[in-house]
Design a protein around this nucleic acid. Structure first.
Lengths: 171, 171
DNA sequence: AGCAGATATTTGAAATGTCAAAGGTTCGCG
DNA sequence: CGCGAACCTTTGACATTTCAAATATCTGCT
């Protein structure tokens, strides 16, 4: 016995010790972080097991899927929130596997555009359908009204954070 | 002006295209993910800039900080939600920097216990204080009541996800 | 005692991640 | 025209990440 519940000690047992009590913002952050990690890891496991793909590859393909004409690497980088250098390698591997194609537009030779191949499009469609199902499954016990409410509330967190980034000086 | 808003195209422009509409669970997930990434990256930047530390190092030290007697690596792995192999390297580097100390208890020579050094304790205390401030700052625009509500609601998401993991078969 | 199986950590290969510096290309302006 | 600034991508050095296989050690059972 005693082996199934131990998994949930988590990050939430963090920091707060500095002087004993922990501020609500910190508590919320730790819970957001651990929840996101938990779900991400499950998705990663399933993508690997069922499709032999990684989560970053899935994310990248998701962006390309909606843009039939492909995207510049810099644009891909912004949308996936991944650094430029990283995108280079990601696309390289996906190209080697035949899911993505790289091309340089006539106008500007600095630019590289990445595009899904037919194989990539088909693979992604299958993964996306499964992915959506996994999420509904994992959130099955959450009140549907709460799902909508959470979406709004987290939006408020996101925009607050956006407005307080170090580089967000404005002008 | 007009340069501060382009950053927000995000992951939320993902998947949902498979057949047009997107399920609320998926929408919520994408927002959770992008929000968490946004905040994590900001924290990572600041930890690096102000303390020369990485986020995983911070997480690991946070766990050790609350356990004056140190933790076994396996326990550290569970609490930080990081794989065993990963903990090895993290502790190695922190030990090289003099913030963590590794020792083997008398009873069981399979075990390695990691413990903060005095330097590690002082460094972490400083980082934790700053970290808490950053979070309050980033969530400054969020209604305090919402912070509490979110904590509860995300708890419900977390426990639903926990109950639907592939490995969570039970018995 | 002695060995099979359980535990705990390390190692190794491959992918991802950041940042900073280096490469090309294009643009604007004198 | 011609050159420096701006833009886009790649490269290189490291840190983190996962998984699976290898090591070590301990435990229980005969």
């Amino acid at each position: 016995m005693a082996e199934a519940e131990a998994t949930n000690v988590d990050l939430e047992i963090i920091v707060q010790g500095v002087q004993g009590r922990s501020k609500p913002e910190l508590r919320l952050w730790l819970r957001m972080l651990s929840t996101t990690k938990l779900i991400s890891q499950e998705i990663r496991r399933r993508l690997r097991a069922e499709f032999g793909a990684t989560l970053p590859q899935f994310d990248l393909m998701a962006q390309l899927y909606r843009e039939k004409d492909g995207l510049r690497l810099g644009e891909l980088s912004r949308r996936t929130m991944v650094t430029n250098g990283n995108v280079t390698g990601l696309v390289e591997r996906l190209e080697a596997d035949g899911y993505v194609q790289r091309l340089t537009p006539d106008g500007d030779r600095r630019v590289t555009v990445a595009k899904l191949t037919d194989a990539g499009t088909m693979l992604f469609a299958a993964m996306a359908a499964a992915h959506e199902g996994w999420l509904q499954d994992m959130m099955a016990d959450v009140d549907p009204r709460m799902v909508g409410a959470l979406w709004l509330e987290i939006g408020s967190v996101k925009s607050s954070a956006s407005n307080h980034l170090s580089g967000a000086a404005f002008e």
